[in-house]
């Protein structure tokens, strides 16, 4: 599953066409994503890719470095055990 990551109003914002979450830290983003995934997938390993939107950087910065970061995450969902 792929998400776009950005930073706005001092918060990280992670979104795709179906889901959007904003939080103060990336840990909170990850927790939110995990909860969202558990509503879709009952169990299994879910690969998540996050791509930072470099448009968030002021334009004059972009000439120095055109990339911030991408993330590859693996979430282990097991909602059946939780029940």
């Amino acid at each position: 599953m792929e998400f776009t990551l950005t930073f706005s109003d001092n918060q990280w914002v992670c979104y795709n066409a179906e889901f959007k979450i904003a939080a103060d830290s990336l840990d909170e983003i990850d927790t939110g994503i995990e909860k969202y995934l558990s509503t879709i997938y009952p169990s299994g390993k879910i690969q998540v890719k996050m791509f930072f939107d470099f448009d968030r950087f002021p334009q004059w910065h972009r000439q120095y470095m055109p990339h911030y970061f991408n993330r590859d995450l693996t979430f282990e969902i097991n909602t059946q055990n939780d029940n």
Partner: peptide, 21 residues
């Protein structure tokens, strides 16, 4: 190497973009 290194490092450690800016 200046600005490029600070943005690259901030990205690597996932700092809030306000820091490298």
């Amino acid at each position: 190497c200046g600005v490029s290194a600070s943005i690259a490092t901030a990205g690597a450690i996932k700092a809030k973009p306000i820091i490298p800016i």
